[in-house]
């Protein structure tokens, strides 16, 4: 049985297939309105989330399916001390597919060892967030018409930013992609990621300001400095305003650069940038719903045809 725990669980061809299906669903949503009638998605959110949980629920409802689940660990049997493995075993008896978010890294993989149905990782601590990556890939592909041959800048919290880790893993499989990693030294990407880039011979640079690299970028992926990822509040306060994108910084950017952000933003992108045609972060939100529709459909099809 196939799960989506890490974006690299899927081949490039499988990802392209999901993105193609997502494009078809955007073009003709009515054609898929009843396609998963009678199927149940369980959304197990052991950590608060609005956007990701609602996008999964919206995706399943848009396909004619139903949704059950919980939105915090307090409202599940975890509060009574039940283990994650037992929760997953139980819920997989009530549903056809599970989307789970958990504060502990590796929790979805642990769940997949015991689940009777496909598991989708909807975020595990600071580790991975592969459905956001599918959303990002879809947005980049719809903007650029390709996922190869481009310079991708990633800015902000690259240490704890799980969307960044997944996106690097996914885009490093395409030809001619170069990464520019823009962060303060305290929030650099974990060494296991840069080591892997070195081993694969994928070009990357680590810089501390976005201004020095802005003219080179085809994509600028902004991230929030997340308070909940810090052990120490003083560190958070010191670093949270370090990287703010505004129209002045964008003056030297390419006319067709795409600005992405997984949202929610705090103040790392000025609202004055929102009307710039290069800002596509709200398109990302819409794409997130359709790519999750395509993902749920694909995983259920794979299971049926296995």
């Amino acid at each position: 049985m196939r799960h989506l725990i890490d974006i690299t669980d899927f081949t490039v061809e499988e990802i392209e297939g999901i993105l193609d299906l997502g494009d078809q669903m955007i073009a003709d949503p009515a054609a898929y309105r009843e396609s998963l009638r009678g199927r149940i998605l369980a959304t197990l959110f052991f950590e608060p989330s609005t956007r990701t949980r609602l996008s999964f629920e919206s995706a399943m409802l848009s396909l004619g399916g139903s949704v059950l689940g919980f939105s915090s660990a307090d409202s599940s049997s975890t509060a009574k001390g039940e283990s994650l493995m037992d929760t997953i075993r139980t819920v997989s008896c009530y549903s056809d597919i599970i989307a789970m978010r958990h504060p502990k890294e590796g929790a979805p993989m642990a769940g997949s060892l015991k689940s009777y149905v496909p598991i989708i990782n909807a975020g595990d601590g600071g580790h991975n967030h592969p459905t956001q990556t599918l959303t990002d890939l879809m947005t980049i592909r719809r903007c650029k018409g390709r996922l190869s041959n481009m310079v991708v800048g990633l800015c902000g919290d690259l240490k704890f930013g799980r969307t960044v880790h997944s996106l690097i893993g996914a885009m490093s499989r395409y030809e001619g992609v170069e990464f520019v990693l823009i962060s303060p030294p305290e929030l650099k990407v974990p060494s296991y990621i840069t080591e892997e880039l070195k081993v694969k011979g994928i070009p990357f640079r680590e810089v501390e300001t976005m201004e020095e690299v802005m003219p080179e970028l085809d994509v600028l992926y902004m991230t929030r400095v997340q308070k909940e990822r810090f052990f120490n509040e003083a560190d958070y306060i010191r670093l949270k305003d370090t990287y703010i994108l505004d129209p002045e910084k964008l003056r030297t950017a390419k006319a067709d650069m795409s600005i992405l952000h997984p949202l929610p933003r705090v103040n790392e992108i000025s609202t004055r940038v929102d009307d710039d045609p290069r800002a596509v972060y709200f398109d990302q939100v819409r794409n997130g719903r359709f790519v999750r529709m395509a993902l749920i459909t694909t995983l259920l099809n794979w299971r049926e045809n296995a």
């Binding site: 994650l84 493995m85 958990h102 502990k104 642990a110 600071g126």
Partner: peptide, 19 residues
């Protein structure tokens, strides 16, 4: 400290050789 193995006692500790 953020790994799921720190709280799920029934999980075996699996490590894979990477380098």
């Amino acid at each position: 400290p953020r790994c799921i193995t720190t709280v799920e006692n029934a999980l075996d500790q699996h490590f894979i050789l990477k380098d």
